[in-house]
Amino acid sequence: MLNIADTLYAWCREARPFALATVVQVSGSAPLPPGSALAVDADGQVVGSISGGCVEGAVYDLCQQVLQDDGPPARARFGYSDDDAFAVGLTCGGEIDVLVQRVEPADVPHLTAALDEAVRGRPAAVAQIVDGPAEFLGRTLTLGDGSVYDGTLGSENEDRAVVAQARALLRAGRTAVIDIGGAPDTCPAKLSVLVHTHAAPPRMLIFGAVDFAAALSQAGSFLGYRVTVCDARPVFATAARFPYADEVVVDWPHRYLAATEVDARTALCVLTHDAKFDIPVLALALSLPVGYVGAMGSRRTHEDRDQRLREAGVTTAQLARLNSSIGLDLGAHTPEETAISITAEIIAHSHRATGLPLSHATGPIHRSGPASPAPAKAARTAA
């Protein structure tokens, strides 16, 4: 639901009831992941998507019905129909389970607060019961800055169990279904809870205030990264040269990296191909738990850099994390093409994908499960 937080927050502020349809389970090749939502207000206004268009009409009708009847939450499954080409279903061949519920903003002030946090770009999580006894379906609990939560899922034991896992998911920026309960002495009801998260944007750190960095900062911003461009040369590291960067820092790359905050979602791109900048920052980066490390340069530059990093004490296992030369083999020449090559590799790396053309691959197009950093380089070539 947090993918449409801005509209839902506006409706909550206006005390406007709405029906919320949420993807709670996906199997096979489905277009959108769990947590994707569509909402309909009493005037018939609709926002969001749960299937990219395949079953939106049927879900819209369900939302209208829930709103008019003021009925309990309902689950529905949509899949591909081989028998009837005109049946409502997913043409992609997968299946999705959808929970549709009526939301009265006055009854869930904690949800309004969480939507407000998400709209402001602050971390927030909403835990929503999506499977279990009928009287529990649709209940929500919200988590703010990691230390404060509100709402209830059923009992204090259930709330605590969910909050602990929701905090971990929020730190990782993951939306996922968790199962709790089933223990008679603590949480007797067995529940499936979908934890929606809105984490702080992942970071893209670009070292080297060059033309390629300007294009990459624009591409990174488009993908939702909080982009930092860092260079030790003040004449090049200026905000005017990098209008799409969230910040431009004048500092030695390794010194800045040592003092800034990174995590498993951070993408780190070294574009200087100058040993006095590259070696210190890469030696440090490869020892940190960042999601992606890439470095620009020719084959010869890579060989020289590899040797220098080994001499600096970087291990073979650490060097295996380095994507050099940076980017996928797209035949890129211009800074803009190179930025696409680099971001394509970052996307593939984050989802543990091959980077191969889909026409040359087999299996589902849409992978299930959360994106997470790949442990090592997948099949890839240089930019």
Rank of each mutant, 00 (worst) to 15 (best):
Q128A: 10
C63M: 14
T301R: 10
T316Q: 12
R305G: 00
T338K: 09
Y256K: 00
E261C: 13
T197E: 04
L2I: 14
Y60D: 13
I178F: 03
G35Q: 04
A214T: 12
R77Q: 15
H273F: 01
V249F: 09
R160D: 08
H349I: 09
G71K: 10
V314A: 01
V103N: 00
S221Y: 07
A258L: 12
Y292V: 08
A239T: 13
G144M: 07
T315L: 02
T22A: 06
S359P: 09
V248A: 01
T301S: 14
P17N: 07
H254T: 03
A74D: 15
I340Y: 11
E337Y: 07
E345F: 05
R13A: 15
E345C: 06
R300M: 10
R299P: 08
D145Q: 10
D150G: 14
L137N: 01
D84P: 07
S36L: 06
L111E: 03
L32V: 10
P109G: 03
T381H: 14
D131K: 11
L32Q: 09
K276V: 11
G121A: 05
T22D: 08
D263R: 09
C269L: 11
Y80A: 07
T334F: 06
L194W: 00
I342V: 11
A344D: 12
K377Y: 04
V250N: 00
S372V: 13
A213Q: 03
R16T: 11
D231W: 00
A275G: 06
A267E: 04
G146Q: 02
E117I: 05
T228V: 13
L319R: 02
A344P: 06
G35V: 02
F277A: 15
P201M: 08
S49Q: 14
R16E: 13
R122Q: 13
R310K: 14
V193S: 00
S29N: 13
A374L: 12
Q68M: 15
E158D: 11
A259M: 08
V290F: 00
Q65V: 07
V108C: 04
C269E: 03
D145K: 05
V103Q: 03
W11A: 04
A199L: 06
G94M: 05
